[in-house]
């Protein structure tokens, strides 16, 4: 099926999410709470676009909008830009010093009215992506806590969590770089808990926590301890093996 995005004809499969169709076709839509690796949560609303169908236009969240028919899409109309501007004004009011939000706000001309005051050290926009990542890739150690103005992301009782394996997925996906991970002398500190880091047997770089490896072993039922290699060395090794096989084959 063919849909039109900003005048460009794009092929799409029924049920495909609008955002991924647009991106595949080189049309940029700003997002905060989206990660290709995780199911959409649709919380930040920055990816809103206008969908015109049967002469009527409506605003949808493109990251979680499955395309079902031949629609026309406007990703950067005046209406959408204005709505994004309002959103960014609110985000900027919450995280006034955050680089990512500052840049986006500038792009959309969003300024915070003076009556809003905020904690200057705050970087979290409460999108919830880290919680999703922890749920899917980690061990469900964190969640959103409280609601309204006191809402935050934390571990139960704000204590070091028994479940946390220190994988850092939460920090990795965070769009605003709000999560602080400290790494020093082979110790990673995250969510008030210290983790011993393990070195890659080949290149000697720290690449995972002990808990992380134990967790993967348990979950996937295999033994990673046989081969403690970081991703880079693993790829290299696989490449070498492939080369060997290939050369054997040629001989």
């Amino acid at each position: 099926m063919i849909i039109k995005i900003d005048g460009k004809e794009c092929t799409a499969q029924k049920g495909e999410y609008l955002l991924s169709i647009a991106r595949r076709n080189g049309i940029e839509i700003p997002t905060l709470c989206h990660s290709d690796a995780l199911p959409g949560i649709g919380s930040c609303r920055l990816c809103i676009v206008e969908v015109v169908e049967k002469g009527r236009s409506r605003v949808v969240t493109s990251c979680i909008f499955p395309v079902m028919g031949e629609i026309e899409v406007l990703t950067n109309s005046k209406k959408i830009r204005n709505m994004r501007k309002t959103l960014l004004m609110l985000y900027l009011a919450r995280v006034p010093e955050n680089e990512k939000i500052k840049k986006l706000a500038e792009e959309y001309g969003a300024v915070v009215p003076e009556r809003f005051s905020a904690d200057k050290s705050e970087d979290c926009i409460l999108c919830g992506l880290c919680v999703k990542a922890c749920e899917s890739l980690g061990s469900s150690a964190i969640s959103t806590v409280n609601r309204g103005v006191t809402k935050k992301v934390s571990t139960p009782y704000d204590e070091p969590s028994k479940e946390c394996i220190g994988c850092g997925s939460c920090a990795y996906v965070c769009p605003t770089n709000a999560m602080k991970i400290k790494e020093k002398d082979g110790i990673r500190t995250i969510w008030n808990k210290d983790f011993k880091l393990i070195k890659c047997e080949k290149c000697g770089e720290y690449f995972a926590t002990k808990e992380q490896i134990e967790y993967i072993n348990k979950k996937k039922g295999f033994n990673l301890e046989d081969e403690m290699l970081c991703d880079k060395c693993k790829k290299k090794k696989a490449g070498e093996r492939l080369k060997e096989v290939f050369e054997d084959y040629r001989e």
Partner: peptide
Amino acid sequence: TPLSSLYS
């Protein structure tokens, strides 16, 4: 269910 979800 994870403790974190219940705490939430």
